[in-house]
């Protein structure tokens, strides 16, 4: 099932199918490893509800939900 990364719940895993958007943020997300095929897992939502913490390529990355919206994933677990 395809979802936006921002819609995943804590503990859910997905495989990235596309990274939309443009500009420096889009490029930075790619560079940080959020490329097609990468497996991401939602580690945590910050205490105030935003940003989120994800695990990708064996490290932890945080990003805002508004940024995670542009990344599409196939839910795998």
């Amino acid at each position: 099932m395809e979802k936006r990364l921002s819609e995943l719940l804590e503990g859910e895993k997905g495989r990235i199918t596309a990274s939309k958007g443009s500009g420096p943020v889009h490029k930075r997300l790619l560079e940080m490893g959020l490329v097609r095929g990468a497996i991401v897992e939602i580690e945590k939502v910050a205490p105030l509800g935003d940003p989120i913490e994800i695990k990708v390529k064996n490290y932890n990355l945080s990003l805002r939900k508004s940024e995670a919206e542009n990344i599409l994933v196939d839910v795998i677990e």
Partner: peptide, 9 residues
């Protein structure tokens, strides 16, 4: 502005 940041171990 974006918040794309590593949470280092």
């Amino acid at each position: 502005s974006p918040f794309v940041m590593e949470l280092p171990p």
